[in-house]
């Protein structure tokens, strides 16, 4: 299961040197047109002071300096970290547990897989509203059920200390299926022979999982980790509808602040600076991750 050594460069006719560009061509063309140009503009904007439409003024690093004294930015940054730490490992752990369970023959396995996967396909706005009904303190079905069980009502979304937890719960719910499916795929290519061999050597189920399966899943984990961090840092719709960033600032995350600066305040330059900070965090995370795992090829 090890990654193959660096593919040898096909040598020979000169034409071959052009071939990769042909294969890459469509992607590169779309990338240059629709992604690179806007990104360069956005980077340029981050060094400008702009109103909604007017011409921007170059202000050097002023936007970035302002970030330092912006309390809302600090709150949003902290919330973003809490949100990411709360959602990413949880989604992956539950996803892996489900995948492990559903990788063996079970009655109704296909149905289970589909059911765990399906939250991923619902639109964010709809999920946000339905969840806000379910978790309404006064008339939500969650509290109605708890009341019947004699457990009392929980201020799911109305208490600043609970709201982030509820939000994390909801987002994990949307994310678990994705992690499960990817892990399922990975688990299927763990050779049964090796696991069986370990079993014969007397390794218990937990030891087999920890010493054999888990290391073999490491590359998958690495990719899922980065994808999940990206998803979490850019989660917008659900938060917007479910809590509006409240109560207070308890669920205000960076991406919302980017949105607010860009479109409510009309400060595109400042929003671009915020966005780049978000990218910097992601890049830093990716690089740290790469350094930690030696499998540098696995991502960047």
């Amino acid at each position: 299961m090890s990654r193959p050594a660096e593919t040898p460069v096909p040598t020979g006719r000169r034409g071959r040197r052009l071939t990769p560009y042909v294969f890459l061509g469509p992607a590169a063309l779309l990338f240059l047109t629709f992604s690179l140009v806007p990104i360069v503009i956005a980077i340029a904007l981050s060094f400008q002071d702009t109103q909604t439409l007017g011409e921007g003024q170059w202000v050097g690093t002023q936007n970035f300096e302002e970030l330092g004294s912006d309390r809302l930015f600090r709150t949003a940054l902290l919330n973003t970290v809490v949100f990411a730490v709360g959602t990413v490992p949880t989604s992956m752990a539950i996803g892996l547990a489900l995948a492990t369970a559903l990788n063996r023959p079970l009655p109704g396995r296909g149905l289970f897989r589909a059911l765990f996967f399906v939250p991923m396909v619902a639109a964010g706005v709809v999920v946000g509203v339905v969840m806000s009904w379910i978790f309404n303190t006064d008339y939500g079905v969650a509290n109605n059920a708890l009341e019947i069980l004699g457990l009392g009502r929980i201020p799911w979304l109305t208490s600043p200390s609970m709201a982030m937890l509820t939000l994390i719960l909801v987002v994990v719910w949307t994310r678990v299926g994705f992690c499960m499916v990817i892990y399922l795929g990975a688990l299927q290519s763990v050779p049964a022979e090796i696991v069986e061999a370990a079993s014969i050597d007397g390794a218990g189920p937990w030891a087999r999982f920890r010493r054999i399966t888990l290391p073999m899943l490491a590359p998958t984990t690495s990719i899922l980790l980065i994808l999940n961090v990206v998803f979490s840092l850019q989660a917008f719709d659900i938060i917007y509808v479910l809590t509006g960033g409240g109560p207070g600032f308890s669920t205000t995350v960076l991406i919302q602040y980017v949105f607010r600066s860009a479109f409510q305040d009309g400060q595109m330059g400042y929003a671009a600076a915020l966005g780049l900070v978000l990218v910097a965090i992601l890049l830093l995370f990716t690089l740290l991750r790469q350094r930690a795992s030696k499998k540098a090829e696995s991502f960047l």
């Binding site: 990104i39 956005a42 904007l45 840092l233 991406i255 980017v258 966005g275 992601l282």
Partner: peptide
């Protein structure tokens, strides 16, 4: 490109 928030671009 997947790291840059769409709101900015």
């Amino acid at each position: 490109t997947i790291m840059i928030p769409i709101q900015v671009t």
